[in-house]
Design a protein around this nucleic acid. Sequence first.
RNA 1: GCCCCGGUAGCUCAGUCGGAUAGAGCACCGGAUUCCUAAUCCGGGGGUCCCAUGUUCGAAUCAUGGUCGGGGCGCCA
Length: 587
Amino acid sequence: MKAVVANLVSEALASLPDLAEAAAGIQAGDTIERTRDPSHGDFASNIAMRLAKPARRNPRELAAAIVEALPDNEAIAKTDIAGPGFINFTLGAAAFHAEVDAILERGVDYGRRPQRNSPKILLEFVSANPTGPLHVGHGRLAAYGATLGNLLEAMGYPVYREYYVNDAGRQMDILGVSVWLRWLEAKGTSVPFPNAGYKGDYVRDIAAEIDTAGIEVHTATAVANELPPDGEGDDQEAKALKEAYVSALIERAKELIGDAGFDRIRQQSLESIRSDIEDDLAEFGVTYDKWYSEYSLTTDGRIDAALDVLRERRMLYERDGAQWFPATDFGDEKDRVVVRDNGQKTYFASDIAYHFDKRERGFDKLIDILGADHHGYVTRVRGGLEAMGYKGEDLEVELVQFVALYRSGEKVQMSTRSGNFDTLRQLRAEVGNDAARFYYVMRSNDQHLDFDLDVAKSQTKDNPVYYVQYAHARIAAVFKTADERGIAWDERNGRSNLVLLETRQEKALMSALSRYPEIIELSANAPQTLVHYLRDLASDFHSWYNDNRFLKDAADLRDARLVLCVAVRQVIANGLDILGVSAPESM
RNA sequence: GCCCCGGUAGCUCAGUCGGAUAGAGCACCGGAUUCCUAAUCCGGGGGUCCCAUGUUCGAAUCAUGGUCGGGGCGCCA
């Protein structure tokens, strides 16, 4: 709908050659916005004000010239020049009726753009280490990523969703040793559990379920003999001690049960947690096209291949026995090691190889959704892409701020390692998937999120998710009642009588409905926009609903109002579907 | 010390590449139901848009400098 106005302005400009120079670089569509105040019409353009300076002419005079040059169009009922030089467009009722028709005809596709082939988008999100269940912070990444993916698909882009599984490296060894120790405990062998280990109860659960056939149970003496002391506290010294202690235990495990035995425990532990995460997310309505193994980068030689590319392009150098990537050339604050002096590749090396691989697989645009604590990696990963010949802009990183959980007015403490955390699964059980999906994307991604459990789980009017769902359920109830009373709805008759919808509320509702395609576009850059829109639309509906008894109206008006009901129901359902929230028939 | 994010009503937050009189929910006060769901609606009070300077016809929005709060700055992952 906005495009109609934009085209008219564009044509008017084209017919005014003396403004061509001043208008260079200005897209007519960018000057058009919805008005906030109905007395300003439906759309406004500030183009005259923007042209005033380069054209050295009075903005109101310019506006008059542009209005004069506007081609005739039946959609526009009126144009006004107002304020310092705004051009206000009032659309005719027929334009809104046509939009209602479009909603009924296109149904679930209303608001969606035609499919296109490019750019192919690879959306990576969550990618939490498989060392324990997802916590509520990951939930925000999941909900945000899933919604963004849906929005990008609604915009017509091909979207491929990927979870990067950090299944290589030291954290996996620590997980393995944690499970091994809990398994030993269950067999009666107890040694001091490392402070750097994973202490959650799930570790015991995994220890109980994995296949340990052929793995020998050792005595506490054998396990703990001549181990260094564990660290206590959070200072530097204590941290070093903790790391040393857990490292010694890992070595001890490998000595006692062999590399193969330890590897079996580690792999089963990893797979247990990974599949648990997958189930958790699937229940949350979040699914992936691929679970991408970091470890596979090593076994397939893709890390070495990526490093070779860097080497060929002279983007690696050696210093102090290590291989360095000159990240400062790409704006980072210091150069970064990719291969340590002991020959081990760093996490950063995997990251470079993974992002290189994404691009090599033919994805044009890479979107990473990361926790805000990862912002330091953005520059160097982008630098890696550039160093390998791709454009830095190919990678877009969305940083999502933290989640703080509140229960009974108090902040809930979260920590994976201490085992004293609130998991996503607990949250879903407590507030429900719908409320969780809705609340997680209600705030801008760069805003900290205070998640109030008491409000989210309350089934009262305080809870915005129910407010929107209730609008949908109410419409379903109208049709159910009509059915029970034997009132037939004649859709065709309704559509030919939309002119009867002329109250202030009905006009506001139709205007709100017609905004939906624009909202989808805006939401693709800021998903919270969709949440706020749905709340506003529901509000417009509830207000209208409260003042009318549709089923008591005369047939023509009743049919027309039911058409509007169906259109509202459709748009709410489409919006909720993108958010991953259900649209109930009754509540 | 450097980097990222935020500061808008009592609280939680929106605010469209800068636009007209800065909005919503909650909370508070008052009202509406013989009715298709009151999980609703209608009305009301509420503002130093953190501070300063600058750019502009026009700044909550952009720039610079402060200030307060959160996070990040390893040959860890």
